[in-house]
Simulated scan of single mutants.
Amino acid sequence: MRTERKLSRLDRVFARLDREPERPTHIDVPRMSRHRVVLFSATLAFYTAIVWAVVVSSWLVRLDWQVMFFRPYQQWPQIHAFLDYYVVLGQRGPTAVMVAAWLGWRSWRQHTLRPLLTLGAALLLLNITVGAAKYGMGRLGPHYATVIGSNEMWHGGDIFPSGHTANAVVTWGILAYLASTPRARRWLSAISAVTSLGVGLTTVYLGTHWLSDVLLGWAAGLLILLALPWFEPLIARAESAILDLRDRRRSSRALPVPTPAPVGAGSLVLTPRNSTEPEAEVLEPVGVTRSTRAPVYLAPGPYTSRGERTPVTPVGSRRPQHPDRVSRGTTPVRPLAGG
């Protein structure tokens, strides 16, 4: 009895990939809706409130010092080794390589550069905004604090906001932003939120960031994700320009098609014609090349049967001529008998 082989989960995944179209017929590009604008405004207000609370050394700074003196890495040392590896999910280099590899495969599969260009635009915005805030406010970290209870601002530090946290929000959140279905977008949004939350709390556990640094890092990363629809037209123009440049380079590498030289005005050449007229000449312009294609012989007239055709002796026949031979179709003349 013949039985069919049961497909494994990996076989079903590859079978689904084989049915995937090369380029999606419709790419759902997020737009800057009213709901997104409200979220962006609320996140920007939260960002401003965190900065102001730290600048004026409010209750948030006192909470930072209390968490620092609590020393979570000494309270729970058994998870220290695991969190040393988990915090790598917020480092810019490893996470950018992993996400770029996945988005590069999607770009190759769907024949579009939008996933990679969107990731590049998000990381560029992250470096500009977070980097400027870090060096502009110059806050020192918990391990380098000088005065207890101080906000440690403008002392040449570079930890406010938390780069690990903001990078985790942007790098893993871009997967949800580029998801092709609403269900995948919801799941990826939840996963990226949990991952970035864990990365931020891990930096507080390790003592490398204040709690307020993590709060500002979450807000900074979320602002970039919410602002990406404003840059979608620029991303589309960049993709079109790159594809046009690729097409021009491909066309320039192709073999050029030979074109006839331009006809010179008033330049004529005398060329003899093969005819019976002596010294017959025709005028041809310079630069016009003769066609190397074999001549086409056309029928001289209407079709005639074989019996109706007139026999023609070929010119220049090599058969020797016999004066005594009588041509076919004529009656030979018999000599008259003398009498």
Rank of each mutant, 00 (worst) to 15 (best):
A96M: 12
T112N: 05
S57E: 08
A236C: 11
A122P: 00
L228N: 00
L113S: 06
E277S: 12
F231P: 05
R249E: 00
R2D: 14
P233T: 04
L255C: 00
G221C: 12
A227Q: 03
R309M: 13
S180A: 14
M137I: 14
V288F: 11
S192T: 02
T43Q: 03
G156F: 00
A265N: 02
R106M: 15
G207W: 07
L225R: 00
V204Q: 00
S252K: 06
Q110S: 10
A15S: 11
G136N: 10
T129W: 04
R334G: 01
D64K: 01
R253K: 14
P272Q: 06
L211I: 12
D158W: 07
R237V: 07
T292V: 12
P256W: 03
E281C: 06
E279F: 10
R325H: 15
G138A: 01
S212D: 13
V312N: 11
M68T: 09
R325P: 15
R92S: 12
V170H: 01
L113E: 06
T330S: 06
D64N: 06
A265W: 01
T331R: 08
G200F: 03
R34Y: 14
L17S: 02
R250K: 12
W59Q: 03
T171K: 05
W102Q: 04
E279D: 14
I224R: 00
Y297I: 12
S41C: 09
E232Q: 11
L188I: 03
S41K: 00
L126S: 04
G266T: 03
I159Y: 05
A101C: 07
A337F: 10
T129R: 00
G207K: 07
G338F: 13
A337H: 08
T171G: 13
L113K: 02
Q91S: 14
G93K: 07
T95H: 02
G131N: 02
L140A: 11
T259P: 09
M68Q: 09
M1A: 13
V37N: 05
H155S: 05
A337K: 07
N167H: 13
A236G: 08
R246F: 15
M98Y: 10
R19T: 11
M32E: 08
R249I: 02
F82Q: 06
R246G: 15
W52D: 15
E4K: 13
R92Y: 10
H35P: 02
H322E: 14
A294T: 09
R114K: 01
M137R: 14
G173Q: 04
P142H: 03
I148M: 08
G329N: 15
W210A: 11
V288R: 08
S251L: 05
S162Q: 04
L245T: 15
I50L: 14
P77Y: 05
A184L: 06
A299L: 10
V55T: 10
S252C: 08
T310N: 04
Y297A: 11
S33L: 07
L140T: 03
L7N: 12
T304M: 04
L60N: 00
P229K: 01
I79K: 09
W210Y: 14
R62W: 12
T304A: 05
R9K: 06
L216H: 15
V214M: 09
I128G: 13
A100S: 06
Y85Q: 10
G141T: 12
V170G: 02
N127V: 14
T3H: 15
T313W: 04
A42C: 01
G136L: 13
G329K: 07
V269L: 07
D247A: 12
A133R: 10
F46S: 14
G217N: 15
